[in-house]
Computed example of a mutant assay.
Amino acid sequence: MQLPPLEEGRLVKRYKRFFADVICADGSELTIHCPNTGSMLNCMPANARVWFSRNDDPKRKLKGTWELVETAHGRLACVNTGRANALVEEALRNGVITELQGFDQLKREVKYGDENSRADFRLSFAQQAVYVEVKSVTLGFADSTTAAFPDAVTSRGARHLRELMALAQAGEPAVLIYCVNLSGIDSVRVAQEIDQLYAQALTEAAKAGVQILAYAADIDPHNGRIALSHPLKVILE
């Protein structure tokens, strides 16, 4: 995926969840949009290197969007969670996600389940449909190459797991993909210390037959490119 043209700056602070102040290369200060609803643990150290895109749309109050950051542990992370679905779709269409190769049709945001959910993707194969949920992972740790999800309590994430589990129990294929938007990672685990209910739901979903996958993103801020490249180990506790 080719990102919009990026500018490098320094983070001043993130606040009110969706706002971030940055110092631009010319020394000016700019308030940009932070497209991330999570806690962004380890993704917003003071004076962190950030990369953002500009937007000249007169309808938008904020003229920039935060895309990438160098974390407290020296890793690169894509903090724009809106990129995760596009990255996974690109990887699906290019055959990178080998477990889901060979589909005939891909549909986005498909209603399903009893809790008014929308699957990120429904893949149609010759004999069946597969429902796919995507989660963006950016939580890393200084002394480990294992990333974790979630970085904040997520009742929505637990609901999606319940919906996937119901599909699997009914004999319909259901897949959860962790899109790991963090460099230097070789595995993913559930952040039980942050959200025990989500951790329990993940364990139950896996036992019910939901397929849990994780794929790593290669992030290149200099050329403005990011793409999923290879699978990662999923650690289920």
Rank of each mutant, 00 (worst) to 15 (best):
47 N>P: 01
212 I>T: 06
13 K>P: 00
126 A>P: 00
82 G>V: 11
63 K>G: 12
193 E>V: 03
8 E>R: 14
140 G>F: 02
119 A>V: 07
150 P>W: 01
38 G>K: 10
55 N>A: 10
146 T>G: 01
69 V>W: 07
50 V>R: 04
111 K>L: 11
152 A>L: 11
205 A>C: 12
79 V>E: 09
58 P>K: 09
132 V>M: 02
39 S>Q: 13
164 L>R: 11
166 A>Y: 12
214 A>C: 08
43 C>A: 09
216 A>V: 04
229 S>Y: 06
9 G>W: 05
105 Q>M: 12
41 L>S: 12
188 V>G: 04
213 L>A: 10
207 K>P: 00
225 R>G: 06
205 A>L: 04
158 A>G: 06
35 P>Y: 12
182 L>F: 08
92 L>T: 12
193 E>H: 14
11 L>G: 07
141 F>W: 12
236 L>W: 01
22 V>E: 02
154 T>N: 15
102 G>L: 12
139 L>E: 03
82 G>P: 09
80 N>G: 04
71 T>P: 07
131 Y>E: 10
89 E>Y: 02
38 G>D: 02
179 C>S: 10
151 D>I: 01
224 G>D: 09
86 A>P: 01
37 T>R: 14
16 K>S: 13
218 D>K: 12
49 R>T: 08
189 R>C: 15
52 F>N: 04
170 A>S: 15
229 S>C: 14
100 L>I: 09
116 N>F: 07
53 S>R: 10
65 T>H: 04
12 V>C: 11
37 T>D: 13
166 A>S: 14
216 A>G: 13
34 C>M: 14
